[in-house]
Amino acid sequence: MRRSLEKIIVILSYASSVMTIMIFSVFLWFLISRGYTTLNLKLLFGNVSPYGAIFKGIPVWDGVWPALVGTTFLVFISCAIAVPVGISAGIFLAEYATTSRWRSFINFAVDLLAGMPSIVMGLFGFAMIMLLRSSLLPEATTCLLLASICIALLVLPYLIRTTQAALETLPAALRLTGVSMGFTKWQNIFRVLLPYASRGILSGVILAIGRAAEDTAVILLTGVVANSGLPGSLTDKFEALPFSIYYLAAEHRTAEELNRGFGSALLLLILTAVLFQIAYWFHGRISKGSR
């Protein structure tokens, strides 16, 4: 009985490892073999010249350039909102929240926010617009700004937790040196602790960028469309890379559009994989350094 249990576990563990490697290789091989031929400037700009699309604003209808720009805007605006708030909240939790009641209350809220399905965040944005329409602004629609706010809420917990962890793992001596030389608490945080924690905080920011770039469920409910061109203002509809992948999977009409889907999927995968690996690399260097 015991021997067979041992055998089962050994077989299970080998099988799981080998299966994981095999399945992921098939996944990657399929995506690369179908996508790599399309990874060129034509994927981005279609039949428009890159110069014309970037500098003269010639609209691109058969390339993913508008989606890439839309995603970039989305990432920038949502990070412009979330990064200052997230880092400040992380500093508060690590350095100021000394009364345990505030600390546990805010911790609880951050945990809840972190565990929230992204579609609920999108539904929240959708509900805000419904309320605005029925009250103050009858013309309000879902738009780039709304999507950015909802994405900001989605990535906020990552920023808070990485900042908090980066500060809390600093050696105690560092906290005492500055203060013993006459720094006030904030001076010490700003001049001594934050520079030391900057790597960890940066890894959080990169992680947040990756999450903001890949999420599809939030923007699905808050204003992404398939063909809008470049967004002109914050209240415009927009295109985004993950959404165009989703859209092309269901609505492709020609083989060329399908190939564009494969190209976009590979492009997004490379983008997020690079971002996440940089973030992990930073993070790994910290934990090695503090040991």
Binding site: F30, R34, T216, Y246, A265, T272
Partner: peptide, 15 residues
């Protein structure tokens, strides 16, 4: 961990 869910979905639809 860094693979976007939409990419999993896309590959699944065609493979």
């Amino acid at each position: 961990t860094s693979v976007p869910t939409v990419v999993y979905g896309f590959v699944s639809v065609f493979l």
